[in-house]
Structures are given as C-alpha cells and as structure tokens.
Design a protein around this nucleic acid. Structure first.
Lengths: 343, 343
DNA sequence: TAAGTATTTGCATTCGTATGCAAAAAATAT
DNA sequence: ATATTTTTTGCATACGAATGCAAATACTTA
C-alpha cells in the first residue's frame, strides 16, 4: 500500500550532494571522491536505495537481461542447462528472462518479438530456430542471438552444439564392435538439426562398414512417440539386437517398453544406446550407455560468446562444436557371444 | 552494427500525428479515432516499431516481469512447475525472470534485492523462504510475494502448498493398512516447512494408531544424502519393511540402493513410498507409490493470486493448501501376507 | 606562494513512453 | 443555423538514472 519509491534524488538530498553524484557512486568506474562516496553510500543504505535497472537501461541501452527460449523442459538436459546458464549469467550480473514455446514449435518469431520488447541484451534459443527474417531484425537491433543445441545456416547466428555427427558415428562403431548384427534407430523430431546430424553420423558409419539400418522409427523426442516406435520395432519376428535412440529421455521410455511390456532383457536380447547423458542415465535402474553432451562446457561457451558479443558489437558470430565421449554402461553388451545371440 | 532503434516519435512523423497519438494506439483502452489508429498501425508495421517495455514501465510502474527464485531444478517437480508457471504467465502478458539459488540456500535476501532492482511486479519463491525484514521491504515496495511449495509464518506473504500434513498422514494410514510393522522415514532438508509437515503428518498418524517410527534418517532432499541414508538404514539386522521417503527424487535413489546395492526386492522385502508424483514415478522401472502434488493446480492458484495482487494493491495475502491423492503403484505391497514377511 | 594540472562536482539534457490538461474537431441537440 | 456535449488530438511534463560539459575544488610542482 505505502508504495514508496526511493530515488537517487532523495538520496542526494539526504547526503547533501547532487543527483549526479549519487548516480556516479553506483556507476562502476565513475569519478567520485572518497568522501562523497561514503556520504552517499550511508544515505543510500539508510533509505534502502537501490538503482532502478529499468531506468538505467533506458539511458545505457543495456538491460542486463538475456532472453531464453526453451521448448523441452521435460527432457532433463534442458533444466540442467537452464540452471547452469542462469547461474553463470547471474555471476556476470545478467539475468534470464524465460520464454516457453510448444514443443511442436510454431511461430518462434512472435515469441522473439516479445523478447525484443524487453530490450534484452542477447537471446539464447535452446533447441529452437528462428526465421532468417527475424535473424536480421535481431542483427539490426544489435541483439546477438545464440542457438543452443541446434544448428541453422545463417551467419548472423552463433551456434553451440555438441558434435552430433561424431556422436552418432561413435555409437555405430561401438555397436558394430560389440558384434551387433541388426542395428536399429529411433529418431528424434526430424526438423531438428541435432536429430539429423546424429542420424547421419550413425548411418554414414554403418555404411562405411558395409552395414545398413535394420529398422528405423520416429520418436520425435517425445516419450509417448518413442514408446509407440519401440512397440512397433520390437514386435516383428526378428527384432533388432541393438537400438540407438536419439535422446536419453526417449531411451528410458524405450527401455521400459522392452523390459516391462515385452519382457526382453537389456542388454542380453537387445542393446540400447542413448544420447545426452542426463543424470538419470547413470541411475542403476537404467545404466544407459550414451553419448555425453557436456552441458557445462556448452553453457560456458554460450555465456562467453554472448558476453563477448554484448561487449563488442562487432564480434563475429561463432560456431562451436563440442565433442562428448561415449559413456559405456550396462545397457549394451560388448562381446558378440552374448546369450541372446543365436546364429 | 547498424543499431537503429525505432521510437514512437519516428512512427508519429511518418504517420503525420503526434507522439502521444502513437502511444495511445498501443495503449489498450486509450482514446483514438479509427482513422489515426489505422495510419499509426500502418506506419508502425512499416518501420517495424514495437513499444519499449522498459521505457513504458518507467511511467506506469509496471514491468510485466515476475521474479522467480528456484533452488532445486534437479528435482523434476520444479522444472515442471516452472514450465507451467511460465506458460500461464506468458498467456497473461507477463514473463518470468529466473534467479537460481544454491540448495543450501544462504542469503535469499541478497537475491531478492537483485530482483527488486528489476522493478518486478511480483515475486515467486519456489521452495525458498525470505527474512521477515525483506518481506516488509517487498510489502512497502508494493511487490507481492508468493511462497510456492514452502510455508512461512508471515502474514504479508501468500503461500501455496500441497497439504503436506495430510499427505504424510495418508501414507501412514496406507502403510499400516498394508500390514507393515517396521515403518521408517527418510526426511528432506529439516529447514523446509514441507519436510516438517510431511513428517509430522506421518508420525502423528503412526502414533494415533499406536505405532512409532522404526527408523529415521536424513536425506536433505539430496540424492547422495538419501543414498547414504538408505545404506545406513538397510544394513542393520532387522531392516524396515516400509520406508516413506520425503520426495520422489530421493525415493528413486533409495530404491536403486535397495535393489542394486543390497539386492533386496521392492515391495517384497520393503515397500517404498515417495512424495510429489513426478513423471518418473510412473515409469515402470520405479512404479512408485507416492503422494501427488498437483503442480498444475498449485501453479494455477499461484498465478491467480499474483495477478490479483498486482491488479489490486490492497488484496490480502492468501494461504492455499491443495490436497493431493495418494497414488498407489507397485512399490508397495498391500496385504500383510507378503513373501518377505516371516513372523 | 603562485601557477599549473588533475580530480571532483553540479547543471542540464537525454533515453522512450504515458498521461493530465486544454484546445480542436466531430457529433449531437436545439 | 447555433449552442452544447462528446470525442479526439497535441502540448508539455514526468518517470529515474546516466553523462558531456564547464565550473569548482583539490593536489602538484617550482
């Protein structure tokens, strides 16, 4: 009710100085004598004064707000990334304004327009892409845009991903080395660059070794779809003896179907490999072999790129690919004389 | 580079009207003729003009930003809540500014100060509490504060929780009815009101039925701690035949220890109950009996309270308790002639 | 001590938009 | 047609803080 706002002017009066003096005290690097600094600080803390970031940004043109667009908060990779991102940016004096979009990802453009209304200093699109028209709008507005875990061919955008192609390739090599004969794939949403890269890395390597996909279904990065895909894939006569699932999140659903609906054993009857290495993957109930996406390193790169772009408007967009190791766990067999094999 | 900003003044010029006219066109409910409305809209879209929210909020005192403080993004209940919250607020034209805090939750006060700097219209504290001193600061600043999934005795704060006491009670009744004799509890962080309420509801009901806790360990809402607790609890001579774990997240860790480290069967040797009903609880690998915290209803209440408080400064803080059902699944046995029982 | 240099300070203006007020225009009544 | 009411419009100012500039003060140096 008693909505009192303390402004720099009131602090100035109490401290017996000008408003500019107060402003300078709270502006790092400004010229203030030790004495006024003390007077002002004392007055400020007495009144409980804190500079109004919004008013400040009107002048400086910097809001210290980063817009973040996220779609898949149900895939644990993203909450983790969000936490890391927010923490890292917080340390640098920035904060994250969140925008959720539907998974099926309609008009990101409208959302980004909303983001721009807040005069954000930068935009991070997690697993989402934007129209090239909008990209140039952001560019014109001097707002750097970073794609996180998604690629797009636009040289005004920075991109941070893991090396999805290499990841897929590693999985193929590993499964072949493990003696698997009927190797299958459950894809993510086919509009996603990450999905495409993982698959082509995987399939390319199979081909290179004279193999081809034994089966393929679409999971769309959605658990329900992945379950459906698994049911279809594993109810034929001769089921695959290995399946690479495009995300851990889907892989868990697939494993549950394989074990609890179909009564098959992992890895005896079928090996399962995921992608992401979210924490759950290491839980003994799943113990999932998977390709690690190093969220911490990806976030670190993202933050450093965005801060750099903010500081120096003329920084060129960068494209970073971080490679993650294949983490071998118990959901895959490694020799070819496994009990489930009978040829 | 070409950081051009289109302001209302430029639109005004192009449309041949005053700046005020432009402002009115973009202010719902302001007085504008049909003709000027058209002229302005055309000019605006031609230039790609959009009002600067920050400048606007300097005048109106409303930023359309809600500050959200979160601690436990690793417990899936919170990402889920965040997603729901952000979506609901987005629909109402608000957006969420995220602030992460350490789990051990030191000075929330400093964080809230930072939040206030952004002139947020409201603050949501998820599973976190604030000093009463700061509560009055927010109150004085006219910023409503809502505790989400945490209680605190301060009548300037609104509170939305599930009925944790009732939840604990239900679990006790259910376990007793299931014929369990040695009932144990693994607690959350003891500083949390949710933890305290769950435990007292549980223990009270045990007492009421002439029972008492057979064993108790502290898990702090942290998986590692919960694992430790489980190891301790289940390596004595006579282990509990049922354990209530204060959160699903911890319960999964406990189940993994019980099954994969100690080689015991759930529910044959021991029944496990969790709290939250996060999606993973329903995955067949865990199939966890648990008390549902209805995130959607909790969020809906939170949003409606916060919007109301923003609209009418004199709204009194509210305290909402939403009760959730016990969801019975396969991690608990229900009759007392189970195979693991031998007395 | 005086002259010169470096530092600190206040004044006035600016950022982009909203809004009270009074003038202008349009609509209605007489 | 004129008088009266209603609606629309522009002017001017305000929001809270940052900053270029010139004046004032403090500090060096000879």
């Amino acid at each position: 009710m008693a909505t009192k706002k303390i402004t720099s002017l009131e602090v100035a009066k109490l401290a017996g100085v000008s408003q500019s003096a107060v402003s300078r005290v709270f502006t790092p690097g400004a010229s203030v004598s030790k004495k006024t600094n003390e007077k002002v600080r004392k007055a400020a803390s007495k009144l409980g004064y804190r500079p109004n970031i919004l008013a400040r940004s009107l002048i400086t043109g910097k809001s210290r707000i980063i817009g973040l667009v996220v779609a898949h908060l149900d895939n644990y990779f993203y909450p983790e990334a969000l936490e890391l991102l927010s923490n890292a940016l917080q340390k640098k004096g920035y904060h994250v304004l969140v925008f959720m979009v539907a998974k099926t990802a309609g008009n990101i453009d409208d959302i980004v327009d909303e983001i721009l209304d807040y005069q954000v200093d930068g935009i991070i699109l997690a697993s989402v892409s934007m129209s090239s028209n909008l990209a140039s709008r952001c560019n014109a507005a001097g707002v750097p845009v970073i794609l996180f875990n998604r690629t797009q061919d636009d040289d005004r955008l920075s991109v941070v991903t893991s090396d999805n192609f290499l990841g897929g390739k590693q999985v193929a090599q590993f499964l072949i080395a493990g003696g698997h004969k009927r190797i299958a794939y459950i894809s993510g949403w086919e509009g996603a660059s990450t999905q495409r890269d993982r698959e082509s890395g995987f399939v390319d390597e199979l081909k290179k070794q004279g193999r081809s996909l034994y089966a393929r279904e679409v999971g769309n990065f959605i658990q329900d779809d992945a379950r459906q895909a698994a049911r279809k894939m594993f109810t034929n006569d001769e089921i695959p003896d290995a399946v690479f699932v495009a995300s851990d999140d889907m892989a868990f659903a697939v494993m549950d179907v394989i074990r609890f609906e179909l009564g098959l054993k992992i890895p005896e009857h079928v090996s399962v490999v995921g992608y992401d290495d979210v924490p759950i993957a290491s839980w003994p109930a799943y113990d999932l072999t998977t390709v690690r996406q190093p969220a911490n390193r990806m976030v670190a790169e993202t933050v450093s790129i965005i801060l750099e772009s903010i500081q120096d408007q003329d920084t060129k967009p960068r494209r970073i690919q971080i490679d993650g190791p294949l983490i071998m766990r118990g959901s895959t067999r490694i020799s070819n004389n496994a009990s489930g094999e009978n040829e």
